[in-house]
Amino acid sequence: MRLLMLSIVALAMTGCASNVVTDYNSSVVFGNYTSWAFVPGTESSFVSLDGNRVRSAIERELNRKALLQVPEAEAGLLVSWQIVPEDRLEQTGLGLGFGFGHGNFGWALSAPPPVREIKEGKLVVELADSKSKQVVWRAASRRYLNENQSPETRRALIDELVAEMFTKYPPGLD
């Protein structure tokens, strides 16, 4: 029974862990912003597949916040996003070891498990004041996009992350 209760508490705690981290300028009155536009030139001459997914998700979430998408010259907020590449080491397989001895003393040798490098991307979204060009709100994902994910998985992950990011906008309402 005790093990069951510990398992339930552990699952509840992991369910409460956020997939995104946000930061913001506490002196900004976010209610003053009514319009937005994407920052021009944030991508190369081609919009990537993930770029289309991110842009669509951001547009959807800002529309839900009743913010109007307008040309850059008329916007109160400028929206920028990027997928920041990160390298991560992942253990694959098991380490091997052997030892001998008895009681409180003994000797052992072990080999660590094999490690491989994985390239991933962390989604970062920033909102900047169009007049001051200062970032006023920033969100970064704790979950990563990687090349092994299917297009459906990538779209679902991007939609989930962007939706969670904008549940924390405007700040102070959560």
Rank of each mutant, 00 (worst) to 15 (best):
W36E: 03
K119I: 06
E147W: 10
A128S: 15
A111N: 11
A17K: 13
P114V: 12
K122D: 06
A163V: 08
R60N: 12
G97W: 01
E72V: 13
L77A: 07
M5D: 07
C16Q: 10
G15N: 09
S7I: 14
S56M: 11
Q134W: 01
F46R: 11
R155P: 04
M165L: 03
R55P: 08
M1Y: 12
G76M: 01
G101L: 06
A156T: 13
G172C: 09
L109D: 02
A75P: 00
A12F: 09
T153A: 12
L49E: 14
L89T: 13
A37Y: 01
P71N: 01
K133Y: 02
G31N: 13
P112Y: 02
T167C: 07
E147A: 13
E61I: 02
Y169N: 02
A139F: 00
Y33M: 01
V20G: 00
W81M: 08
S26Q: 09
L78E: 07
R55A: 04
M1C: 05
S150C: 09
Q82V: 10
M13V: 10
N19W: 12
S35V: 10
L68C: 07
I8G: 05
S141N: 06
T153C: 04
E120V: 14
P151R: 10
S150Q: 12
G15V: 08
F100G: 15
E147F: 12
F98M: 05
W81E: 02
S141H: 05
L123I: 15
K131V: 12
Q69S: 06
L77P: 02
L67I: 03
C16W: 09
E86P: 00
V47N: 15
L109E: 00
N52C: 06
F166N: 12
N146M: 11
R64S: 05
G97A: 02
V21C: 05
W81I: 07
S48H: 08
S130A: 12
T167I: 11
L49D: 13
A12D: 04
A10V: 12
R154N: 05
G31P: 03
R154P: 07
S56A: 13
P114R: 15
R55K: 14
T22C: 00
S130W: 00
G95M: 03
F30R: 10
S44G: 15
N32I: 05
L161G: 08
A140L: 04
L11T: 07
G172T: 05
Y144F: 15
A37P: 04
G93S: 07
R64D: 05
G76P: 01
S48P: 01
D87Q: 15
K168D: 11
M13D: 01
T92Y: 14
L11Y: 10
V125E: 02
N63W: 13
Y33D: 07
T14R: 11
V162N: 04
S18D: 14
S150V: 11
L11A: 09
S110D: 09
T153M: 05
Y169M: 04
L161W: 11
T153Q: 15
R138D: 02
P112N: 04
V9K: 02
S18H: 11
A108D: 05
D159L: 08
E117K: 15
F98P: 03
L4Q: 07
E72L: 14
V20Y: 04
Y24L: 00
S56V: 02
A108S: 15
L78W: 11
S150Y: 03
L49C: 03
F46T: 08
R142F: 01
L145R: 07
E147S: 13
I8T: 14
L77Q: 08
V47I: 14
A37S: 10
